[in-house]
Computed example of a mutant assay.
Amino acid sequence: MTALAAAQLGLKSVIFCPEAASPAFQVSDAHVCATYDDWEALARFAAQVQVVTYEFENVPLDTAEFLAQRVPLRPGARALAITQDRLQEKTFINGLGIETAPFAAVDDLDGLHRAVAAIGLPAVLKTRRFGYDGKGQATVRPGDDLAAAWEAIGRQSAILEGFVPFDREVSIIAARRADDAFAAYEVTQNVHRNHILHTSTVPAEVGAATARQARSFACAIAGALDYVGVFAVELFVVGHGADERVIVNEIAPRVHNSGHWTQDGSVTSQFEQHVRAVAGWPLGETGRIGQVEMTNLIGDDVADWHEILAEPGAHLHLYGKAEARAGRKMGHVNRIWPDGAACPRGSSKSC
């Protein structure tokens, strides 16, 4: 989707990916298929481009630093290093004076017992590195066997995070250029099923002060990281009325699933915005067009493509993946309806 956005701006994309069947190869001008530690292939790739970006945070840091020595890397390797490690990420966020869930490092079973004593239960045990959509996590409740939780995450270096009594999950998608120009989209309200994002809806049900707080957090994080490109900040909404506030959950150094609504529901999509930012071009307008809901198509959901195409106000995006599997994101659909009107599928608040 980033390559498609670049093409609309007259820019060419070269994709580096270890997977031979990468859907991005279908829409790019060229590609390099090699492992992330193939230094010769990485050098050939760098020689073909003027700037390098990445679209997920599990690119090895050594790979990013190798490329950064040869061509501008946006966002930079520091942003990647911090967001790859949940402990570093939480520590970094707290260092900015921004609230997160309580957390503690866990390096072994004894460390897990100490962390539980300090934070309390319930809590979530997460691997420090890798893992998304619920992978590499184990919920720990009073009375649970801590040894079993430690085994469940593969006895890897981890972080224990205390439960946050949140009312809603939201995110904010924002962009920063190298000259500190900054732009943010409206706060997005997110609903997860089985730890995977199900829907993202704008406008979110948050107060104006809460929305300003979310934006200020995103701006502070981007500046502290000297970030260039689009990123997401995932947040919990806690409290009510005058006491409502947001607590940061995670940072994603990339275009984000909860920003897919911008493809059809904003003046500038997050993908075009990312291309503009890394190319050093002016950032685009982030205004919203009506009310929008993005629904992920997971696994066999993609079989409904024909019905979705026939639905008024629905915009279908398929990812070109060859095989539908349980839990695999195969595409998404954006549904748009006018401000002040009921969703065309019958609900007054959400499709």
Rank of each mutant, 00 (worst) to 15 (best):
C219K: 14
K126Q: 05
K126D: 03
P282V: 03
G136T: 07
D180Q: 14
Y132E: 07
L73D: 02
W39A: 00
V302S: 11
E40T: 15
F66T: 00
A324C: 05
I93N: 07
R276P: 00
G241V: 02
V246W: 04
I82S: 06
A6R: 10
E161C: 10
I159D: 06
R288D: 07
A7K: 12
R254G: 02
R276L: 12
R86G: 00
V228A: 07
G95C: 10
G223Q: 13
E151Y: 00
K349S: 02
N94Y: 05
I119R: 09
P18F: 10
A342Y: 11
V52K: 07
R86K: 14
R155D: 08
R328H: 01
R141F: 05
L309C: 15
A279G: 07
Q8R: 15
T63L: 09
S22H: 13
K321E: 05
I196C: 07
E65S: 00
S269R: 03
I93G: 03
D226L: 08
F166T: 02
R325Q: 06
V71E: 06
G287S: 15
D339V: 11
S28Y: 00
D38G: 04
T35M: 10
E186G: 15
F163E: 12
V228S: 09
E311S: 15
L146Q: 09
F92S: 05
G287W: 05
F271G: 03
T63I: 04
G136N: 03
K321H: 08
G223N: 11
A24K: 13
V238R: 07
P165Y: 00
E205F: 12
R325P: 08
L235Y: 05
R345M: 10
A184E: 12
G280N: 02
A252K: 13
Q213E: 14
W39K: 03
K12Y: 01
V248G: 01
A148Q: 09
S258R: 02
G346L: 05
V228Y: 10
E250C: 00
G223C: 00
